[in-house]
Structures are given as structure tokens and as C-alpha cells.
Amino acid sequence: MKVTETNINGLLILEQDIYHDERGWFSESYNEKLFNKILNRYNQSEVNFVQDNHALSHKHVLRGLHYQQKPYTQAKLLQVLQGSIWDVAVDLREDSATYKKWIGIELSAKNKKQLWIPAGFAHGYLSLEDNSFVTYKTTRFYKKSKELCIKWNDSELKINWPINPDVSIILSPKDKIAQSLKDLVL
């Protein structure tokens, strides 16, 4: 497995080994022993995933930016099984040198990249194709009462979403009333 560090400490891009033959291809998308060995190499604690989530989105659907308050912050391991998304992670760890910095990366069924997002990040994504199927593992259970939603276009974060100005994005009711980062208690 190829591991690429990003410019935000702890945020990793993983590329699985793909084995092709006349039947198609095979990959091991998750191996607990290997994954925790990778985390240890980057001075991160081992994790225990407790929940798998799946989401299917139409083109122009934007989900996020979502975050759970302490002590319910979730680490996530994401991948796209069908279609493609522009995935964004925002560092909300107040003691981090990259606090309030973000990265965006295309994840797709074609590139088979995974994104490891440690606990303490807000997360969201824009579906770039119809029927984009995203799956992700989390280290904590979803707790609705501790979920925060930050505006996808927050003026302080200045996230550069790949959005055509002639197209309307599709937001959930929750995401439509999201707050500015400056107004939230993390």
C-alpha cells in the first residue's frame, strides 16, 4: 500500500495494491493489522472502527461540513466505490499547527484512493457524478446531539470547491442552516 502524507499533520492518502488478471482485479480495502502499522509509522494511535457508513449521492450534492464535538469526535477512513467526489477535511484541532487549514482531494472508483481523517476534523464532500457511492468507517458512533455543521462556503475557511457557477448545488435541510465556524463551540 502506498501512503502519501498531506500538508496537514495526520491526514493521509492511501492507495491500495491492486492485483489485475484476466478476471478483473482484486484489492484488500482494509486490513486492521496493516492499517494500524501505518498509523504507528506516522505517530498516530491505533484505531478501532465501530461503524461503517454508506452514502449514494447524485451529481452536485454537497454533504457537510460535519463534525462531532468532544469527546465524540470521529476519525474516518473513506473511499469511493462508484463515481467520484471532491472530498474536504478541515483541521479543527485547536492545538494543531494547521488549525483551520483544509485539503481537498478527488476520490473516485477509478483512482481507488482512500483518505484517512484523524479525529478532530470537519468533513464534507461534493459529488462530481451521478450515483457516487461513498463508504467510510468511523471510530465513534454517530451522536446527533453532538454533531455540528459548518457552512460549506464559510468565509473564514475559503474552501475552493470545484463548482461550476452556473450549477446549483444540492444541500440537505441541515446543511442549508449550517453555522459559520466562528459561531460554533467546538
Rank of each mutant, 00 (worst) to 15 (best):
Q68N: 13
Q68M: 13
Q68D: 14
Q68Y: 11
Q68H: 15
Q69N: 14
Q69A: 15
Q69P: 04
K70W: 11
K70E: 15
K70L: 14
P71W: 12
P71L: 12
P71H: 11
T73K: 10
T73G: 05
Q74D: 05
A75S: 07
A75R: 05
A75G: 13
K76F: 06
K76P: 12
K76A: 06
L77Y: 12
L78Q: 07
Q79I: 02
V80N: 05
V80P: 05
V80M: 06
L81I: 10
Q82P: 03
G83T: 12
G83H: 13
S84T: 10
S84C: 08
S84Q: 12
S84P: 06
I85R: 12
I85P: 10
I85W: 03
I85Q: 09
W86F: 15
W86V: 06
W86T: 04
D87Y: 01
V88R: 05
V88F: 01
V88P: 02
V88I: 13
V88H: 01
V88A: 02
A89T: 02
V90N: 03
V90S: 00
V90A: 01
D91F: 02
D91K: 10
D91I: 04
L92H: 13
L92R: 14
R93Y: 03
R93W: 02
E94F: 14
D95C: 02
S96H: 04
S96A: 08
S96K: 10
S96Q: 09
A97P: 08
A97H: 07
A97G: 05
A97R: 08
T98L: 04
Y99P: 04
K100V: 00
K100I: 00
K100G: 03
K101I: 00
K101D: 03
W102N: 06
W102C: 00
W102V: 00
W102D: 00
I103T: 03
I103M: 05
G104R: 01
G104V: 00
G104C: 07
G104M: 00
I105V: 12
I105L: 03
E106F: 05
E106I: 09
L107N: 10
S108G: 14
A109Q: 14
A109T: 07
A109E: 13
A109W: 03
K110V: 10
K110R: 09
N111C: 06
K112L: 14
K112H: 13
K113F: 10
K113S: 12
K113W: 11
K113N: 15
Q114K: 15
L115V: 14
W116F: 10
W116N: 10
I117M: 11
I117S: 02
I117L: 11
I117Q: 06
I117H: 02
A119N: 05
A122Q: 12
A122D: 04
H123G: 07
H123R: 11
H123W: 03
G124Q: 01
G124H: 01
L126M: 03
L126F: 02
L126I: 06
L126Y: 06
S127M: 07
